[in-house]
């Protein structure tokens, strides 16, 4: 990958992870961070302005986390940071140092969908799918706090995630379905 102006990005020792999209910046302006993403410990040497979502997508290469509005409205970039939903476009990667991040790729285990993923499948909780990773992560965060939510609690838990296709009803159904499965 070449950046504008033919600049090669700085990559890690294995040659596959982009460590900085701004290699021309001075070393002392970079910060070393270490964080766990889906159970794997990662280290990166990044600029302070680097967003958590850019670290996840461009450095680690997990592109299931989507970028939508970049103004912390739409929720497409929602991930769990230390078990709680956050909008990863509005969190600086440096501020996630030492944290544990879970993205949509961290949910399925051994080829088995997570109950929330299965629920979105069964209840048709998506159409175009763009909001879905964020919606599922927000829903997983909700069930950690409230394992058996009412419809109102589901709607409150997901109010920071915008879907422009479904009208939300099937998404609410999916969260209820997953809650029933996970409690059982």
């Amino acid at each position: 990958m070449r950046l504008a102006g033919g600049v090669l990005p700085k990559v890690c020792m294995c040659g596959t992870h982009i460590l900085s999209l701004h290699p021309q910046r001075k070393e002392e302006q970079r910060v070393k961070i270490s964080l766990s993403i889906n159970g794997t410990q990662h280290e990166a040497d990044i600029e302070p302005r680097f967003l958590l979502v850019h670290l996840i997508r461009d450095v680690i290469g997990l592109t299931g986390t989507h970028i939508g509005c970049e103004t912390s409205i739409c929720g497409a970039c929602t991930v769990l940071l230390d078990g709680k939903p956050v909008k990863s476009c509005a969190v600086l990667a440096v501020q996630a140092n030492g944290g544990q991040v879970t993205t949509i790729e961290g949910l399925a285990k051994d080829g088995q969908l997570h109950p929330m993923q299965e629920a979105f499948w069964e209840c048709h909780g998506l159409q175009c799918g763009y909001c879905t990773p964020g919606m599922i992560m927000a829903a997983c965060g909700l069930l950690k706090e409230t394992p058996n939510p009412s419809e109102e609690e589901i709607r409150h838990g997901l109010e920071g995630n915008i879907c422009r296709c479904t009208g939300y009803q099937h998404i609410v159904d999916a969260v209820k379905y997953a809650a029933d499965k996970m409690v059982a």
């Binding site: 929720g75 939903p85 509005a90 965060g141 909700l142 109010e159």
Partner: peptide, 9 residues
């Protein structure tokens, strides 16, 4: 304020 993901930060 905001929504849950904002309230966490």
């Amino acid at each position: 304020t905001g929504a849950v993901a904002i309230q966490n930060r």
